[in-house]
Design a protein around this nucleic acid. Structure first.
Lengths: 212, 212
DNA sequence: GACTTAACTTAACAACGTTAAGTAACGGAG
DNA sequence: CTCCGTTACTTAACGTTGTTAAGTTAAGTC
């Protein structure tokens, strides 16, 4: 462990310092307050210094996304303990909406903003349910299909995952984008979440669904 | 009709000229290309001239939203002819997703971007199903409830409207934000739309739902 | 015909992302 | 020890952005 390793370590340290500063600004004042100059102020470097560690602002935000995405997926693994796949699906749905509600800025950046060139150097572990929320949900649906808990014609686990994802995404993203809109007499988000998830589970199961 | 009226009319003309220029830029090159200067170029005025007709850029965009929102709602009225409320609901769902798919920029601005101060001078005709898509969907659900087509415990038409809106919004907004993300093996949007709507209708109706 | 006001233009400001050019410190080679 | 090149920065600047202050011109009013 010569000076070579030390430099490497220091480099990594300042990288995470930049990311942390961005994240803080981001969570406390919203995306539009995350400017290179304000990040630089926080870490007491010049704005240009950031470019030595990240190609540009987009790359910085993309990495922030990736990191938080992984953490996001990780908190789902606790739900893997739920035995019944449909109950597990319900729990994931609620956890998803809850995450979005507690981290509006993050959610907005991750799922509501078309990234210019997505997945350019995303080093996420695709397919691994520990780090990939999509794969986690899909595995639930594969299990539910195998256990014949779903209607017979529903066989495409990917399609089901995408539609159920759409369902919970719709609830939370509409909340984030339109909560302050007095145009609509919004029902509490908890009620909307519950009905949406109930509706979806009832919509894909066969015959008499168990009342929750 | 003296010069007073003429001036008023001219004022209105340039207002719509500004809005049209913004809309064109917007639809052809995306939101980020809509700058005050480029709008000004198009209409051959100085950028400052715009401020005489709109308080700021946000107000301009808000008015553009309002206008297109109204037109959006208007195209639903054609579906009022469908007799069966559940079939009408399905048709509205598909029309909604279709609109978003054909007008990505508009949809993004209208429903995916938290407006700073929403509904500040929105002069939309609230409650009028001719101009208010929300009211149109709600009226369908009121009808469905009255006809006892929905499960007995579903009595809150507003809650139902909001959740169904979330469902279709989820499909199209995820498409807009994440279509270019190769992370997921996306199924065609038409399939996702169909399943989402089927799932929702099945999820709120009682017992055996008619197969489409 | 003087005066007010509406409808602009020109010039500028501050903040933004980003880059070019310069500088100081460090690690290894001769 | 000295030279040298790389690494990690800073300062200054460029081109854009939204927005405003100050000046100008034309039309309508009394």
């Amino acid at each position: 462990m010569g000076p070579r390793e030390r430099r490497e370590r220091e480099r990594e340290e300042i990288r995470t310092k930049i990311l942390d500063a961005a994240r803080e600004l981001f969570a406390s004042e919203g995306v539009e307050s995350v400017t290179m100059r304000r990040i630089a102020d926080r870490i007491e470097y010049s704005p240009t210094a950031i470019y030595f560690h990240f190609r540009d602002k987009d790359a910085l935000l993309a990495e922030l996304c990736d990191h938080d995405f992984r953490e996001f997926a990780h908190q789902f693994t606790a739900l893997a303990a739920i035995a019944d796949p449909l109950e597990r699906l319900r729990a994931v749905g609620h956890a998803y909406i809850d995450f979005g509600f507690r981290n509006r800025s993050h959610y907005r950046l991750m799922f509501m903003t078309p990234r210019a060139n997505a997945s350019r150097d995303s080093q996420l572990a695709k397919g691994n349910p520990e780090e990939d929320a999509y794969a986690f949900v899909k595995s639930i649906l594969v299990e539910a299909i195998a256990a014949k808990r779903l209607r017979a014609e529903l066989t495409d686990a990917d399609l089901l995952t995408q539609v159920i994802w759409s369902g919970v995404h719709g609830v939370i993203s509409l909340e984030i984008a339109k909560a302050s809109d007095e145009w609509v007499e919004w029902r509490p988000i908890a009620e909307r979440a519950k009905l949406a998830i109930d509706m979806m589970v009832r919509g894909i199961t066969c015959g008499v669904a168990k009342e929750q």
